[in-house]
Design a protein around this nucleic acid. Structure first.
Lengths: 151, 151
DNA sequence: AAATATAGTTCAACTGTAGAACAGTTTCAT
DNA sequence: ATGAAACTGTTCTACAGTTGAACTATATTT
């Protein structure tokens, strides 16, 4: 029983590392050379979030706020992201994509689509649903378990 | 149909990023502070590979060989890894764990186990098998598709 | 009004990455 | 056998990402 769990974890870690690394490398090759994978992930979060803040990104990305400042500074520098202060609470800074940013992001999205989509055709529709649902369940389990190391 | 594929990809990317980041953060918190996640992944590869070389690590990890040199230098510095030249082909350098390295690695393994294992109990045995098998199939599809962007 | 909390930035030190130039070693063609 | 080509790994420089502590500015609490 313990052995079985250990065995699953090893297989999961092996497959996981392989997929993470290889997909990451392919995505990097396909998106514009001056956009990094981390920057693309940040853009996805900003795109999906109304009135996105640094604090939200830091928590979701599991890094300190100073890392977010560094990434956002580069994206602002590149004219992709704009900062807007909230006039009601001037501590808050909302992050949004400029017009140029939107087109960079959309180009990256479609490149990622082209990289990932071909792999889907090797699987049954039903299995894809199951796989994604399990992944989502895992994500939500982890998310609802913040801080509590046990359980 | 195209929409369905797009939708799958978005859901996959969302769940994938969440799981990657959160699991990464939890593993980092649990393993020794002076070992990074990337270093741990490298140790897993070295552990699994007889006569491991930099070239093998670079290919598997999808990075340039100079990145591997940098990581290995730090691990050698920390007394975790040892380099051994092949006397038959003096270009090759085999990487292996020192006794200290082995104990560091085993401690990390058991910490990772403690972090990951609890999540498994939320799933059916059958579903875990399916999930891991799909992950492995995906990994092997990607691996057998080196360079060829299409198909 | 003063203390406390919150949002974000700055800074220094470090890890990881890329790519080009390089050194040493082996293989291969002539 | 010799010189060219191929291969393994390292060095170097520049940059992206991360951390954690110190800091600024603003809002909230008491």
């Amino acid at each position: 029983m313990e052995d079985e769990v250990q065995h699953w974890i090893n297989r999961y870690m092996d497959a996981y590392m392989m997929v993470t690394r290889q997909v990451g490398a392919r995505i990097k090759d396909s998106i514009a050379a001056d956009t990094t994978n981390d920057q693309y992930q940040i853009l996805r979060l900003i795109n999906a979030q109304e009135q996105c803040t640094s604090t939200y990104l830091a928590e979701t990305f599991c890094v300190g706020k100073s890392s977010i400042t560094a990434i956002i500074n580069r994206l602002v520098q590149a004219g992709i992201i704009e900062r807007t202060r909230d006039e009601n609470d001037r501590r808050q800074v909302y992050l949004s994509m400029s017009e140029h940013g939107k087109s960079v992001f959309e180009a990256a999205e479609s490149q990622v689509h082209e990289v990932v989509a071909p792999y889907l055709f090797h699987f049954e529709k039903k299995d894809i649903e199951t796989f994604i649902m399990m992944f989502e369940k895992l994500a939500s389990l982890i998310q609802n378990d913040n801080g509590g190391k046990s359980q």
